[in-house]
Computed example of a mutant assay.
Amino acid sequence: MIETNLPIYYMAVNIASSQFRGIIPPMITPLNNESELDLKGLRNLIEHLIKGGVHGLFILGTTGESTSLPYALRHRLIEETCDIVKGRVPVLVGITDTAVSESLRLAETAKQCCASALVAAPPYYFSLGQPELIEYYEYLADRIPLPLFLYNMPSHTKINIEPDTVEYLSKHEKIIGLKDSSGNTAYFNKLLYKMKDYDDFSLFVGPEEVTAETVMLGGAGGVNGGANMFPRLYVELYSAAVAGDIEKVRDLHDLVMEISTEIYSIGKYGSSYLKGLKCALNLMGLCSGYMSSPLHQFNKEEKDRLEIILKKIQKKIL
C-alpha cells in the first residue's frame, strides 16, 4: 500500500533528457473489461513495439485512455509494463490527474517499478492561468522521484502551456522536456526557437502528421499513436528525418498520412482516432479491442470497413 504522505525529493536527477529521443509510442491500454488488463495482449503489444525498434514507451497517456481507467488498474499497468520491459527501453508514465495526491501516488509506483520518467498535462477542470500553471508544476516537480515531461494537450485540458512558461519551468532540475499534442505547428516552432540553446530539454510532438518536419527542425522525436500498429515505419521515418533524407521522408510520410486519413477517420466520432487504432490492433491479433467507458468499440460494419483498409495498408508496409 502506497503511503499518502509522500516525501519531497531533493536528490539530483540522474537521467539526462538526451536519453529521450526518437519514437516513443503512446501505448494503448489492452483491456478485457472495465477493471481488468488484457495481460496477454499487453505482453504481445510490448514485444511488438520493442521488436519494431522504438526508443521508449509512454503509458497512461491520452491514447492509453488514462483518465477513464480505475486507479488500481493504472498502478497495475505500471507494474506489469515495467516487469515486461525489464529495462530494455525507457518507460514514461503519465500521471495526469485533477488531484495532485493521485499524481504523486502514480509517480511513486513508477519509481518503485523502475520507470524512467513521468509525464503530466495540466489539471483539466479549473482553467488555470500561466502563473497558476507554474505553481502547479513546481509543486509537483518538487515532490516526484523521477524526471518530468510537461504535456501540452489544450484540446483536452483547455489550457495551453505558453512558450514563456515552458522556458521558465525548464530551469527546474526535474523538468526535462515537453510533449506537444496541440497540433499547432506555429506553437511548436516557437518552442523550438525559444528552447534552441537548452540542450538538456527535449521537445517531442504528438501528431504523427508533423513528426518528420519537426524532427528535421530540431525536435527530439514523436510520440505517435500509429507506432502501436507499425513501429518500424515510424522509427524509419524518424531516422530518415534525422539524416535529412528528404526522398525517403516523403515516401514514409505518405504512408503515415494514409494511416491518419483512413484508419483514424471512420465514423463521426470525437474518438475515431482511438477507436480505429484499438480496432486495428485487435484485427492484427495483438490485443483486445475493448475500450473503457465512456468510449466503445466500432460496430461490425465499421470494423469490417477498417479490416479492408488495414489489409491494404499492410501490403504496402509489411
Rank of each mutant, 00 (worst) to 15 (best):
P25A: 08
V93E: 12
L69C: 03
L133I: 14
L57T: 13
T29D: 05
G87F: 04
A12L: 02
G22I: 15
F201N: 10
V166D: 02
Y234P: 03
S101G: 04
L237Q: 06
M291P: 05
I24C: 08
M257I: 14
P131M: 02
I246V: 15
Y151T: 07
Y151E: 03
F149G: 08
S18K: 14
N299G: 08
G61S: 05
R43I: 12
L31V: 06
A12Q: 11
I176L: 14
V235K: 11
M11D: 12
M195K: 11
S271Y: 10
L106H: 02
P231N: 10
H253P: 00
E65T: 12
N184S: 11
P122L: 03
L60W: 01
L77N: 11
S170G: 01
S272Y: 04
Y198G: 00
I308R: 13
I95R: 13
T63R: 05
I144H: 08
K51R: 11
F149N: 07
Y234A: 08
L118N: 01
Y139Q: 14
V119D: 05
D304F: 02
P207D: 06
Q314G: 00
R43D: 14
A121H: 03
L118F: 00
G183N: 09
T185F: 12
V256C: 15
V13E: 09
M11W: 04
L203Y: 09
G53P: 07
R305K: 10
E65S: 14
K311W: 01
L140V: 11
I78K: 07
S68T: 06
E135Q: 10
K194Y: 01
N299R: 07
E132W: 00
A227S: 15
M216F: 01
D251L: 08
N282Y: 06
L217G: 07
D245I: 00
Y269D: 08
D199Q: 08
V235I: 04
L283G: 07
G53F: 03
G270R: 09
I313E: 11
S103N: 06
L146S: 07
G222R: 08
L146V: 08
S292D: 01
I84D: 10
A110Y: 01
D251F: 03
T211I: 05
I159Q: 12
L140F: 01
V256H: 11
Y234M: 09
K179S: 06
R250I: 05
L6T: 10
K158E: 05
C82E: 14
K248M: 14
L306G: 09
F230A: 11
R76H: 09
G244W: 09
D199K: 13
M229D: 03
R143Q: 15
